[in-house]
Computed example of a mutant assay.
Amino acid sequence: MARRKKIYEGKAKILYEGPEPGTIVQYFKDDATAFNAEKKATIEGKGVLNNRLSEFFMTGLTQIGVPNHFIKRLNMREQLVRAAEIIPLEVIVRNFAAGSLSKRLGIPEGEPLPRPIIEFCYKDDALGDPLVAEEHIIAFGWASQQDLDDIVSLALRVNDFMSGLMLGVGIKLVDFKIEIGRVWDNDYQRLLVADEISPDSCRLWDIETGQKLDKDVFRRDLGSLSDAYTEVARRLGVLPSNVTHTTKPTLIN
């Protein structure tokens, strides 16, 4: 097998040149990080689960007409995606108060918000991904006003899809973050959902018990991250119903 050219390595994924122009191979690592990578660990099987779950969510978005970069899953840890120019923003959609929103505004965790709230953070690890306003985004040229309108529309469509999907399996979608990329079809630019959608990028709570099924398990030392992610995959039908641990996941094609 020919050695592939690495394009970029982040905290949770490695990007390689794809087999065709305009494509990228996205490899999911087992690394877990929190607090801007101040806390680190290797969680066996995490990359496999996030690969499969992101495929599941992106495929569902495609089916309802939400554009995204996913093309196909290649193997247990890799997927082929469309190359895109990533807008340097984390787009956060909040349905319930949690995390930094609760700390900033003093709202108790778990309190329902009057409507979904969309926030933007500037993607810069050295700065700690600071919260920014739409005025900053437009003034510094990260995105135009039309881009922002389209980003908000995409984010709310993802929220509707993900909220309904999770509700159907007894999980509350507290909040999530996505990244948006630009692609060009001839001279026409359009935006699409990129990066990943997985328990790494969502807050997921069991509706009945409030049990956390996301990366807060790792952040707050609440138990096994593998077990939490496996439970999400099991409820969504990504794993067989009799799987209880994901050291060596058995995935459904």
Rank of each mutant, 00 (worst) to 15 (best):
N51Y: 01
A133W: 14
D124R: 13
G47S: 00
S201W: 03
W142E: 10
N51C: 08
V174Q: 09
D187K: 07
V243T: 09
I87T: 06
K11S: 09
Q145P: 02
L154R: 00
H245L: 05
S54F: 07
A139Q: 13
D221N: 15
S153Q: 00
P249Q: 02
L105R: 08
N50I: 01
I64W: 07
D216Y: 09
G45M: 10
K6F: 06
I64R: 14
R4F: 07
D175H: 13
E196W: 10
G223H: 01
G47Q: 00
T247K: 14
L192D: 04
A139E: 12
A133I: 09
R52W: 14
T250R: 01
P116G: 02
G45V: 08
V174N: 06
R157C: 03
E78Q: 13
R94K: 13
D175K: 13
L213N: 11
C202Q: 14
V81R: 02
R115M: 13
T244C: 05
V243W: 03
S241V: 12
A41D: 15
G22C: 11
N95C: 08
V183C: 05
F96G: 09
V66L: 06
R157D: 06
I107N: 07
T62W: 02
V25Y: 14
N95K: 05
V93D: 03
R219L: 06
D187I: 08
N51I: 01
S241H: 15
I151M: 01
G60L: 03
E134W: 06
R219N: 08
T250D: 07
D125T: 05
N159Y: 10
P112N: 09
S144R: 02
M166K: 05
E196G: 04
G47R: 02
D221R: 14
A12M: 08
F161Y: 15
D206G: 12
D216W: 11
E20H: 14
I107W: 10
R190T: 09
Q79F: 03
R94E: 04
T247H: 07
S163H: 09
D149V: 05
D200R: 15
E20P: 07
L165S: 03
P114K: 08
E55W: 13
E231Y: 04
R82I: 09
I7F: 05
G141K: 13
E109V: 14
D185N: 11
L165N: 04
L173E: 10
G65Y: 08
S226W: 00
V238M: 00
L165Y: 04
T230A: 11
L80N: 08
R220G: 01
I117V: 13
Q189A: 13
P114L: 07
K212R: 15
R157M: 00
I7R: 15
V93H: 04
R77A: 12
P116E: 00
R235P: 09
T250G: 02
T209K: 10
D187S: 11
P240I: 03
K103A: 15
G164T: 11
G110A: 09
